[in-house]
Amino acid sequence: MEVTVTVNGSDQTHDIEPRVLLIDFIRTRVGLTGSHIGCDTSNCGACTVLFDGKPVKSCTVLAVQADGHAVTTVEGLKSNGTLHPIQAAFKEEHGLQCGFCTPGMMLVGAALIEANTEPSVDDVRWAISGNLCRCTGYMNIVTAIQTAAATGEG
């Protein structure tokens, strides 16, 4: 089937089998490898993207279901050459180590601070509870998201 997905503002048209997952479409058809695969059971959130603005696990959406929809990946966070506040805050607060969960964490964080400009520690921990990190113990991720909320315009 031919599908067109708007990825980071650009229309991506590819002919794919219905069984192709959105994460696979993004990584191997569009060629954006910032979104990762960490499990087979929709638990880890390494594949998180924004689907029409909301964070979802792109391993649990068929690419054909994204036809006509807008997807934002980590590569789309930066705008006009400027880092998104969440990106700057993750670096500043040491919110990442191996970097594998980081794109998903940042996208969830970006969606959260869009809706809640002063998230509490519990707000952040609840929001990122669909994303696993094996390195950081989440402490600095929480701080980074709060810092981004405080510094961002969103």
Binding site: G45, V56, T60, G130
Partner: peptide
Amino acid sequence: ISDPLVRNR
């Protein structure tokens, strides 16, 4: 219900 991302979908 499940986790925040699953709840979005």
